[in-house]
Structures are given as structure tokens and as C-alpha cells.
């Protein structure tokens, strides 16, 4: 019986073996859970905020800090509706001394981008006020439109050192840039906290960075402009970038069968009305992707040169369900709804 002794030894060791395997599994799953992705939710910029953190201890705490920082930036600096913010005070008093320099730096960043697109302005509030889309919408008179165009002119904004002044009835709104700006802030907060990867969503603006575990590269849906909330018609796989979408399908009102959307041409104070229903841009900055999606929504395909200038990619959806994508997206862009037709430029 050559195997007798070995069998005896194995039998003696069996319980010890079992116990060690089981504890190893427990320890492994505990550590894995500690480092697994964690998600937290909040609200900012009139939208839901979702922050997911990968590959770090205390992911929940880090996600919470990112949401806190997003809230601070929105409520203390950028919001034009919350009384606590610098922009609100600037609009009330016509001037504001920005001791921290934070607002000034965001104004400079956005003004720089806007210098590429005369149809956009940081002083868009006089225009959105007369259309009152969030309050049900009303069509302004020609005089009101002409007056709003004058007030919204970027020339009415002057920044000298830390002093910001609004002239001739100009009123500031980070509307087109707010979500991207706070999204970028959220991503940078996570990066500085030592997270290996993260996904920050502020409304429809998405920021992705680093190694996102099994989700890497991160699949992001592109909203179906003809479908319901949260429905997408395509997906795109991305790493380290920001995605923004501007469209006419969510914030609008209708009168006599005509749709008036919330994106305005600053040179006419009229809502954009073209054959485009949504523009998604993928770029390396949050304020940048927000700017480009709005600019291309206004400019149409002429805006594609702007995307090229900033090394960004775009997905343009037309009202006839034809889709134009940047050729760099071929391979990572996947149609999930066969009702659309795609061509690359």
C-alpha cells in the first residue's frame, strides 16, 4: 500500500487547508470590496451629479469630497440663480471684487473660448430672461430682442485685476459652461485625492479619467434626441476626456407648432433653429467640450473647424436621423439604434 501514509497526511491537513482557503477568499473579497468602485450622487447646476471612483481606499469619501467641491463652485462662484454666488452678486450690483481670483480665472477661460464664436456670450442672461423658457416660455417683441442683443454683448464685460464690472445692463450666466466647468473641477478633485480612475457626470456632461477597472475604456451612451430621458442611440468608448451634448430636445417650449429651444444666437437673441437636433463633443477639457457643443450647435457644420482647432471630436445628429461623426471616432463609436445612418468626416 504505497499511498496509505500520504492519504493519512492529506486527511490530517484537510481541515487546515479548508480553513485557510476560506479565510483567503474572505480576505480577498474584503480587500477587493475596499478598493472596488464607489458611487455617490448629489445636485448642482440644476442637474443631478454622479461621481464614481475606482481603485482607491475610501472611494465613498473621495466621491463625496468631489461632490462637495462641485457644490461649492456652483453655489459660491458660478450660479446665476443662487444668492450666495459671486455671479449672482455681480449681476445684482453690476460689479464685484473677486478676492480669490477664482471667478476671474473662469471668466478669462470662457472669454478666451468665446472669442472664437461671436454667436456666444457670457452675458446671455438678458436673452434667456426675455424668453423665460424655464417658466413656460414667451415670445419677445422685436424691440425686446434688439435690446437683449445690446445687453448681451461681451463688450459690456470688463475685468481689471480682481474687479469685474458689467455695463449697459449686461448680466452674466455660465449657462453654456457651468456643467463642464464644475465637472472638470470634480475630476481634478478626484485626481488630487489619489483615485486611480473616475467618472463624473453633471447632467449631460461627463468627465472620464484614469483606469476605470473593468469598465476601461468607459462606454458612454449618446442621448437619443428623439427618445425619452436616458435613452441612447449610440455608444462611444473613451478614456481621459470630457463629453458634452447640446440639443433642442430637453429645454424648450412650443407655440403654434414651432419649437423654441434654450440655445440662443447672441447676435440675434433668437433660439437656434437648424436641421441639427443635437451635438456631442469629446474634448480634453470640461468647459471646452461644453463650449464646443454649444458653438457647433449654433454654427452647424461650419463649426467643425473649431473642433479641429481644439483637437476635439464630434457627433452631430440631424433632424432626419442622419449622423455625422469625426473620423477619429470610427472604431470607438457604435450605433445601437439602426434607425440612424452614420457618415464620417
Amino acid at each position: 500500500m504505497p499511498w496509505g501514509d500520504e492519504l493519512k497526511t492529506v486527511k490530517k491537513l484537510l481541515p487546515i487547508l479548508c480553513v485557510s482557503v476560506i479565510s483567503a477568499v474572505f480576505i480577498f473579497s474584503f480587500v477587493k470590496d475596499m478598493y472596488s468602485e464607489k458611487t455617490q450622487y448629489g445636485f448642482a447646476c440644476g442637474s443631478e451629479v454622479k461621481v464614481t471612483v475606482f481603485g482607491t481606499k475610501d472611494g465613498e469619501g473621495k466621491a463625496k469630497s468631489a461632490i462637495d467641491e462641485i457644490n461649492r463652485l456652483d453655489s459660491i462662484v458660478l450660479s446665476d440663480t443662487l444668492k450666495t454666488s459671486a455671479v449672482f452678486k455681480l449681476n445684482e450690483n453690476g460689479e464685484y471684487t473677486d478676492d480669490s481670483g477664482e471667478l476671474v480665472s473662469y471668466i478669462n477661460e470662457c472669454a478666451d473660448l468665446i472669442s472664437n464664436c461671436g454667436e456666444m456670450t457670457l452675458l446671455s442672461k438678458p436673452i434667456s430672461d426675455i424668453w423665460n423658457i424655464s417658466g413656460g416660455g414667451s415670445i419677445p417683441s422685436d424691440e425686446e430682442l434688439a435690446d437683449a442683443v445690446k445687453k448681451a454683448d461681451m463688450k459690456n464685460l470688463s475685468v481689471s485685476g480682481n474687479k469685474i464690472t458689467l455695463l449697459n445692463g449686461g448680466k452674466m450666466s455660465f449657462g453654456a459652461f457651468g456643467k463642464g466647468t464644475v465637472c472638470e473641477k470634480g475630476v481634478n478633485t478626484l485626481k488630487n485625492s489619489g483615485a486611480k480612475g473616475g467618472i463624473v457626470t453633471v447632467g449631460g456632461t461627463v468627465g472620464v479619467f484614469g483606469k476605470c477597472g473593468k469598465s476601461d475604456p468607459v462606454t458612454v451612451g449618446v442621448r437619443d434626441p428623439f427618445g425619452g430621458a436616458g435613452e441612447y442611440f449610440a455608444t462611444v468608448d473613451v478614456n481621459d476626456c470630457y463629453l458634452s451634448t447640446s440639443g433642442d430636445y430637453e429645454k424648450y417650449f412650443e407655440k403654434d407648432g414651432k419649437r423654441y429651444c434654450h440655445i440662443f444666437d447672441a447676435t440675434t437673441a433668437l433660439p437656434v433653429d437648424s436641421d441639427i437636433t443635437s451635438v456631442t463633443v469629446i474634448a480634453n477639457g470640461g468647459a471646452l467640450s461644453d463650449f464646443l457643443s454649444t458653438a457647433i450647435f449654433i454654427l452647424g457644420e461650419d463649426g467643425l473647424t473649431l473642433a479641429e482647432k481644439y483637437n476635439a471630436q464630434c457627433i452631430i445628429v440631424k433632424k432626419d436621423k442622419s449622423v455625422i461623426i469625426s473620423k477619429e471616432l470610427e472604431g470607438s463609436f457604435k450605433l445601437t439604434d439602426s434607425g440612424f445612418s452614420v457618415s464620417a468626416v
Partner: peptide, 21 residues
């Protein structure tokens, strides 16, 4: 404004992690 949201859960393997729009 009311800080309320509803979402149908999607834990599927191929589900997108976010939707831009």
C-alpha cells in the same frame, strides 16, 4: 429643484456607464 431622481437600474455588463445629453 426638488432634489429627487428616479432611475431604472441597469447592472448589465454592456450597459454604458453614463449618458451624455
Amino acid at each position: 429643484p426638488s432634489r429627487v431622481s428616479v432611475e431604472i437600474k441597469n447592472n448589465g455588463k454592456n450597459a454604458p456607464r453614463a449618458v451624455t445629453g
